[in-house]
Computed example of a mutant assay.
Amino acid sequence: MKFIDLRSDTVTHPTEEMRKAMSEAEVGDDVYDEDPTIKKLEFLAADILGKEAALFVPSGTFGNQLALFTHCNKGDEVILGDDCHIVQHEAGASAVIAGVQLRTINSDHGILNPKEIESKIRKFEDIHYPKTGLIALENAHSNGRVIPLKNFKEIREIADNYNIPIHLDGARIFNAATALNVDPKKIAKYADSISFCLSKGLCAPIGSILVGNSEFIEKAKKKRKIMGGGLRQAGVLAAAGIISLEKMRFRLQEDHENAKYLADQLSRFDFIDIIENVEINMVFFKINKEFNKKDFILFLRKNGIKINPPDENIYRFVTHYWIKKEDIDKTIKFIEKFFNQ
């Protein structure tokens, strides 16, 4: 059975063009810095985001944790939002890998208050204090919201005043750039390092990229090796990533429009509330009705639709390259059928 998979944009399969490029990729040992396809991907990624250099890594979590590991010393403190991906969905890796302390602040749907960030900065040396080593931001946020650039500009000014670097978890930076209708460089310029995923809405099967200045990336290469991320003939993966950057990032508006269509169709049910503005390819909603959640998920799966269980009664449906309008119509039809049976 071909499933309609709404669980995440991580479920995307590579396109036929990607598979062909992977099979024909010119490769070499990347740990020896000899893989030409990896080099092409890294140069392309750095250029698109206006940075000096880039590094291919296995995953988004790997990219974020490598950034923390590279920017910070053991015992440093990282200021970030309490609902960001690094805090919520990376299994405590910051403590294990970088050995840093996370100092969280309240997040307003992903927007951080610059004054609150400034209030948390360790402003002088004290035997009792850790050093503020990094500020971490996220755009697009994992709650599906896009952060206004004005907010980033204000945070950048504070970071510069205290000489603190900024890392951006830009897993979906191209979704954010699409929603804001800006060149991705305009988002990236506020951060010293950015990680982004090739394997979500961009359809590559594996991989993320970490970008920054040349000195930072050179330092990160050794840290990547320590983390076990020194890959060999990785050009077979980079070939798909090149197509992601040259082609797939330019079609994300279609996913956003499908998400808005999905939200509109869901909101037709008087027992469903859309709880976040639909700004990228994610729809968050609550079902205000008594029903068996396991039966609901199994019913949809039996009819060729995969969804995740709710998180604190909130469902998330995600559109992507392999979700078309007719798939949304089929999903709505079976949701209606379940609640009318």
Rank of each mutant, 00 (worst) to 15 (best):
N163M: 05
I164Q: 11
P165D: 00
H167Q: 06
H167M: 04
L168K: 12
D169K: 08
D169H: 01
D169E: 15
D169S: 15
G170H: 05
R172V: 01
F174M: 08
F174H: 06
N175P: 01
N175F: 06
A176M: 02
A176K: 04
A176S: 14
A179R: 07
A179P: 03
A179H: 01
L180R: 08
L180E: 05
N181P: 00
P184A: 05
K186P: 01
I187M: 06
I187A: 05
A188R: 10
A188D: 02
A188M: 06
K189W: 02
K189S: 05
K189C: 07
K189G: 02
Y190F: 15
Y190R: 12
D192H: 15
D192Y: 09
S193H: 08
S193R: 13
I194F: 01
I194E: 00
I194N: 03
I194Y: 01
S195Q: 11
F196D: 02
C197P: 00
C197S: 15
C197L: 08
L198M: 08
S199W: 02
K200V: 01
G201D: 10
G201M: 00
A204T: 12
S208H: 05
V211H: 10
G212Q: 02
S214Y: 14
E215G: 02
E215W: 00
F216Y: 15
I217P: 04
E218H: 09
E218K: 13
A220Q: 04
A220R: 09
A220N: 04
K221V: 02
K222R: 14
K222L: 12
K223L: 03
K223Y: 12
K223A: 09
R224L: 10
R224T: 03
K225V: 10
I226Q: 14
M227L: 15
M227Q: 11
G228W: 04
G228P: 03
G229S: 06
R232K: 15
R232S: 12
R232F: 02
Q233C: 09
A234I: 02
A234P: 07
A234E: 07
A234H: 13
V236I: 15
A238N: 11
A239G: 12
A239T: 11
A240I: 12
A240M: 09
A240S: 14
G241C: 14
G241E: 10
I242F: 02
S244T: 08
S244G: 12
L245G: 09
E246V: 06
E246P: 09
K247G: 06
K247R: 13
K247E: 13
M248T: 11
M248Y: 13
R251C: 04
R251L: 07
R251V: 14
L252D: 00
L252K: 08
Q253K: 15
Q253M: 12
H256V: 08
E257R: 13
E257T: 05
E257S: 09
N258F: 01
A259E: 05
Y261M: 12
Y261H: 09
L262Q: 10
L262G: 11
D264E: 12
D264L: 03
L266W: 03
L266M: 04
L266P: 05
